[in-house]
Write a protein that binds this DNA or RNA. Structure first.
Length: 880
RNA sequence: GGGAGCAUAGCUCAGUUGGUUUAGAGCAUCUGCCUUACAAGCAGAGGGUCCGCGGUUCGAACCCGUGUGCUCCCACCA
């Protein structure tokens, strides 16, 4: 079969993915084997694949494919998250385009549209994962609003309520005025903003004024007090006196409290309990009136008295000009401050007082904190333990209600008089409410379920067990087999949102950790180090990249640049490197398959020792040892989750050791046959390399595996070969050969001997046997026609020193003795300096007295070796 | 404001308990090659005050202190 000039991934990739699926290789059932389980961090059902997913899922696929090849029962569970805020926002936007307002729909009608949308677009990201080669068990595809999942969420809510961990309370919360919903603290992103600091004079009741500074002048309509520091001499005479709020003329008290900083602004703070977290706390302390001047959409309410129904930012402008007109503004300063924005809708968050559902975290968090601190759950890299501890030790209650329709509806029912009951369904709630209200006549029509939904994370924290129906069908065979899962791969950004909470839910509901290892990936940034984001437009089109470079190249590119826990700077040139690597493999395949037609008959013994030329025996022996050595290294790196390093190591093994050295060493001369034993060994090595690489680059490795040898099995499920302990003598012999070849090639280069010009080599050595063995390879690799041995220097030749041995290169060429001398002198200077530093060390009595014997022995050897090299160089200089 | 982390070649990073490290790799750069697998390639080379300063030690890229610069997390002083 004719192989294409370059590797063409597209057809090959879809061919193998379809083949693997048809063989059911990715599906897993409990059996006698050791399980290896990963649950995917479920992407938003609205999501499309971006670089973060690419990194994250490539890592998971590497781990899963490796486990599969280790003979474990690998199970990688796919799925999506209903992502309440994000999805609801998309559906609302879609409806708006069709000219439908959400407010014109009933809840059921809206949910109808939402499900329709989910069915149509919800699977896109899962299809995209197939393109990347991800070996997920598609039969297990889960969704956080599947019927059993929904039921479990409701059950957990009921259970935590019964245990007293869930309560309903009025609190200051972060309010998203666009989505009209509460946000948890984690969903607020603070950004630096250029604001103004307005200095506003409030008239004092007894005459005169007091000036306060604020960035939010529109909130003065809700002012309930002015607060000053008790020790501030400027205001001591005003404690307990009254000031008048401009424009609306409300009378407010001046109170002292340590909270106020003397040297900020004017040292006087206006207190607006309804619209600021800290002011609210002051309000509680001094029993101040809470005047909520804002509606849920960010417009001003009746309570504001002025500008009713107008937007908060419009009002800010208006009130400033009105205050200026009435001479209340003393001055306006430019001021940079941090303002909270909604993570989902990017509007300025409004602190707002509201009645919400909460989870009390303290008790739930204790076992989860311990599990990570005593390494029952391992974090990779471990530095995230600190971060985790800090958050867990200062954990605050979790606001879980969201004013949305898309999600798990809060299972609480209310009567018109405000009584409520938490239950699994309306009927149960009715029974409870009859008792609570002591009204046996209460009917189901008279009670109403809470309109709100639960925070998305309140469902995703059950993911590691509920994908196996672990709560809805307790202790079933599957959950018992697969749980706890092995590795969670996720971004450090969601360590609190999700990781911490899964650990809590795991201990609460399974009495067991949800996973053994957590691998935190870095954040994918662009070349300039900026985070990839839609608004910056710096996220590349992943599917476009896969089309352009191939999935294997994309996987390679993203992995080669991503050390564990460090951010990765994404650069398309890494994908080029990946593509080039694929091409290199492809060309090596072309070379080896070319040999197939030209096999020399293997002799009867068919063993390496029988190969008539010792040349190939050495090459084969060396590479076999090298391959086994690296296979062990890679295994150890992967055990430590050093995936990037493992890939780099394999890359170098394939490119340098296999292609640049080994294949060149065994390559037969033009039109010459290759020994069958060598050929078979070479094919075996190539297969083993493909095995090692398969988890990283599944497609090309599978293709090459089949093209090499027409195998009936598939690499995807083939178990790893057993590695052998490497022989260091053989490895050293290989290294020596490489060194000699490189040094002679360098000498050829420096003396401008054309590649086609042949040379003769004279070796002066005490160990000719070592070189006899490698003569043939050496000649081939440096284009020498003869290798001779000599006991004395050969005049008019180029000299190369390797340790104590000398190589005299005879070429049909004028020699540049000046340059050679310069080179030798440079070398000599280096060696002399080195020797001096060693001697200095050895002549230090304290060193000899204190250092370990093996360290001293080593220094002595360094000295002897350096001295030998120096005398060799000196001798060479004399011959010039 | 509180905390964590990082600083090694032009770039991205390795460098295990301090001693085969006057420091390695990939990419980029330079030189020579269209050598029958591969120019998306081959061969070779150059490139570093291990952020500054001080200390511990026989010995420091590594440990300690300090300064500088960067990144992230938490808090959110109006």
């Amino acid at each position: 079969m004719e192989l294409s000039k370059n590797y063409l991934p597209t057809i090959i990739e879809s061919k193998w993915y379809a083949h693997w699926l048809s063989k059911d290789y990715f599906s897993s059932k409990p059996d006698h084997r050791e399980p290896y389980t990963i649950v995917i961090p479920p992407p938003n059902v609205t999501g499309v694949l971006h670089m973060g997913h690419c990194l994250n899922n490539t890592i998971q696929d590497i781990l899963i494919r490796r486990a599969r090849m280790q003979g474990k029962n690998a199970c990688w569970v796919p799925g999506t998250d209903h992502a309440s805020i994000a999805t609801e926002a998309k559906v609302v936007a879609m409806l708006r385009e069709r000219g439908i307002a959400k407010s014109s729909l009933s809840r059921d009608e809206f949910l109808g549209y939402a499900w329709e949308w989910k069915e149509k677009y919800g699977g896109i990201i899962l299809q995209q994962l197939r393109k990347m080669g991800c070996s997920l068990d598609w039969d297990r595809t889960s969704f956080t609003m599947d019927a059993h999942y929904y039921a479990s969420v409701i059950q957990v809510f009921n259970d935590l309520y019964k245990k007293g961990h869930i309560y309903r309370g009025k609190r200051m919360i972060n309010w998203d005025v666009k989505a009209k919903t509460a946000l948890s603290d984690e969903e607020v992103i603070y950004k630096e903003v250029q604001s103004n600091l307005y200095y506003i004079q409030y008239p004092l009741e007894e005459g005169g004024t007091i000036t306060i500074a604020t960035v939010r002048p529109e909130t003065i309509l809700g002012d309930a007090a002015i607060c000053v520091n008790p020790h501030d001499e400027r205001y001591k005479h005003l404690h307990g006196k009254y000031a008048i709020v401009p424009l609306i003329k409300r009378r407010i008290k001046i109170i002292p409290d340590d909270y106020v900083t003397v040297d900020f602004g004017t040292g006087a703070l206006k207190v607006t309990p309804a619209h600021d977290m800290n002011d609210y706390q002051l309000g509680q302390k001094y029993n101040l009136e809470v005047i909520d001047t804002m509606n849920d959409d960010g417009t001003l309410s009746e309570a504001a008295q002025l500008y009713i129904g107008e937007d908060r930012f419009a009002v800010r402008k208006k009130i400033v000009s009105d205050l200026e007109a009435a001479n209340y503004i003393e001055k306006i300063e430019a001021y940079t401050n941090q303002v909270g924005f909604s993570e989902r809708t990017d509007v300025v968050v409004e602190p707002r007082l509201s009645l919400q559902w909460w989870v009390s975290m303290k008790k739930l968090s204790n076992p989860a904190l311990d599990a990570v601190m005593n390494d029952e759950i391992h974090f990779h890299p471990a530095k995230f333990k600190n971060l985790y501890r800090h958050w867990m030790e200062n954990i605050k209650d979790w606001c879980i209600s969201r004013q949305l329709w898309w999600g798990h509806r809060i299972p609480a029912w209310y009567t018109t008089d405000g009584s409520f009951a938490v239950a699994n369904n309306a009927d149960e709630a009715l029974e409870q409410l009859k008792k609570i209200t002591k009204n046996e006549q209460l009917t189901i029509e008279q009670i109403k379920q809470d309109d709100d939904c639960l925070d998305t994370w309140f469902s995703s924290w059950l993911w590691p067990f509920e994908v196996f129906n672990g709560l809805s069908n307790k202790d079933n065979e599957e959950v018992n087999y697969y749980y706890p899962t092995n590795t969670l791969v996720t971004a450090p950004e969601i360590i609190f949102f999700w990781v911490a909470r899964m650990i809590m839910a795991g201990y609460e509901y399974k009495l067991e950790k949800p996973f053994k290892d957590v691998y935190f990936t870095g954040i994918v940034r662009d070349k300039q180090g900026r985070k990839m984001s839609k608004s910056l437009g710096n996220s590349p089109d992943l599917l476009g990249l896969i089309d352009q470079y191939g999935a294997d190249a994309v996987r390679f590119g993203i992995m080669i640049a991503s050390p564990a826990g460090n951010d990765i700077l994404f650069d398309e040139s890494a994908l080029e490197q990946g593509r080039n690597f694929n091409n290199k493999l492809w060309n090596a395949l072309k070379l080896v398959t070319m040999w197939k037609g030209k096999l020399a008959k293997a002799n009867s013994k068919n063993t390496l020792a029988s190969i008539d030329s010792s040349t190939e025996a050495i090459a084969v022996d060396w590479f076999e040892n090298r391959l086994n050595q690296v296979a062990r290294e890679v295994d150890s790196l992967l055990n430590q989750f050093k995936l990037s390093e493992a890939l780099k190591t394999l890359y170098s093994l394939v490119w340098d050791d296999f292609c640049s050295w080994y294949l060149e060493w065994v390559k037969p001369g033009f039109e010459q046959p290759i020994d069958a034993v060598v050929y078979n060994k070479t094919v075996l090595f190539f297969e083993q390399l493909m095995q090692l690489l398969h988890p990283f680059m599944p497609f090309i490795t599978e293709e090459i595996y089949h093209l090499l040898n027409d195998q009936s099995d598939d690499l995807c499920v083939k178990h790893y070969f057993a590695t052998k302990q490497e022989n260091h003598e053989i490895l050293d012999a290989g290294e020596l050969l490489k060194r000699v070849i490189t040094a002679i090639r360098d000498a050829r280069n420096k003396n401008q001997i054309k590649p086609k010009d042949t040379i003769q080599i004279y070796i002066q050595t005490e160990q000719p046997i070592a070189y006899k063995k490698i003569e043939a390879i050496l000649m081939k690799q440096v284009n020498a026609i003869h290798i001779n041995y000599t006991s004395e220097a050969i005049p008019n030749t180029i000299l190369v020193n390797i340790e104590k041995d000398k190589f005299f290169i005879e070429a049909d060429k004028e020699l540049d003795t000046v340059a050679m001398k310069e080179g030798l002198l440079k070398n000599l200077a280096y060696e002399n300096n080195f020797l001096a530093s060693v001697i200095k060390k050895l002549s230090n009595e304290k060193f000899v007295a204190n250092a370990k014997p093996e360290v001293i022995a080593l220094e002595r050897k360094k000295q002897a070796d350096a001295e030998a090299r120096i005398s060799t160089i000196e001798a060479s200089l004399k011959t010039l």
